[in-house]
């Protein structure tokens, strides 16, 4: 770990401003991802700004009837909230499918969105990795790729985004609220929040330097049956091989987003017009242009099968 300085910010604006003052500053929330990466010197911030005392840990109903989730709300608390469980079931399920009880007690909404990939080569500093060291090459390409992306990857990086929560937020059309170092706030639709790797896999989100996430907002509940199916080799405490977040309405229409297949939660709105035709039709458009490796080609089949089961279950429930 590299030496760093530490401060505790009192307001969001102060936190963002502090980030501007220190080149190489990072916010720290639950620390469950950042600290691990610092020990391995994959992250080397020179200054840490602790955002736990900013009062961003509340949930409130928005004037539009949606939900505003403070950036520091813990994953455990979010999953347990009555409104979330009633109106945004896909989110509660996604959260509870992630990590372990202890980690969820620490993990925050913003930190979860910004957690970094679990590509094993990213984690081994002896291996070339464009995400760690831009221009270094990608050790994963041609290596062990069972967990890696099947779509939207590039010649520079084939990593996936590991979050479960983010997949549910994507299907719920969430928006990320931020405050910049100059005090300006902005709203970024989750669809535009995470980036594909392209030739700059080290740039993972639309956030500018020093920009602080203050909240994530959800629009009014859309009803429907909510599903989050996470597929993994062991029953708990494992990252998704693939996950399927879906909301299916009584008429069979609906939305679907995928985890474990790309550098971001994967959703193609146009594919959702096929929902009433069945999983194959949806997946044909959702994963059109997929470029799996031999080791992860199974993910395509798997997504289709899981979505088919979800649609069947939704239909069954409708009677």
């Amino acid at each position: 770990m590299r030496p760093f300085t530490y401060e505790r910010a009192r307001t969001p604006a102060e936190a963002a401003a502090a980030a501007k003052r220190h080149a190489g500053a990072k916010f720290v929330a639950g620390g469950t991802n950042l600290l691990d990466l610092m020990k391995l010197e994959i992250e080397t911030p020179t200054h840490l700004i602790d955002v736990n005392g900013l009062g961003l840990d509340t949930l409130e109903t928005t004037p539009e009837g949606g939900l505003r989730i403070g950036a520091l709300v813990r994953n455990t608390d979010l999953a347990a909230d009555a409104r979330v469980r009633r109106d945004y079931g896909v989110l509660a399920r996604a959260l509870l499918a992630g990590a372990s009880g202890q980690l969820r007690n620490m993990a925050t909404t913003a930190g979860n969105l910004l957690q970094r990939t679990r590509c094993p080569y990213f984690y081994d500093t002896n291996m070339p990795c464009n995400k760690r060291v831009p221009g270094d090459g990608c050790a994963a390409i041609g290596g062990f790729t069972r967990q890696h992306a099947v779509i939207g990857a590039s010649d520079a990086c084939i990593a996936t985004h590991p979050s479960d929560m983010a997949v549910a937020l994507r299907v719920l059309d969430a928006t990320v609220e931020t405050i910049g170092p100059d005090g300006a706030t902005r709203r970024i639709p989750l669809a535009d929040f995470h980036r594909l790797p392209g030739d700059q896999p080290q740039v993972e989100t639309a956030l500018a330097a020093g920009e602080l996430i203050t909240a994530v907002t959800l629009p009014r509940p859309v009803g429907g049956a909510h599903f989050y199916r996470k597929v993994r080799d062991r029953a708990s405490f494992a990252f998704a091989l693939v996950s399927v977040a879906a909301i299916v309405q009584r008429d069979g229409s609906g939305r679907v987003a995928l985890g474990g297949v790309a550098h971001k939660p994967w959703r193609v709105e146009a594919a959702e017009s096929e929902m009433t035709k069945g999983a194959r039709a949806v997946v044909a458009r959702l994963l059109a242009g997929a470029k799996p490796t031999t080791e992860n080609a199974f993910k395509l089949k798997l997504v289709e099968r899981v979505l088919a089961a979800v649609l069947a279950e939704a239909k069954g429930a409708r009677g």
Binding site: D233, L241, G278, R280, F298, K301, R305, A309
Partner: peptide, 19 residues
């Protein structure tokens, strides 16, 4: 070994509603 799902998937029956 290990018997992971990717080794079984191809040969499992198709779920209904695959379309």
């Amino acid at each position: 070994y290990p018997i992971t799902l990717d080794k079984l998937l191809e040969r499992l029956p198709l779920p209904t509603d695959s379309g």
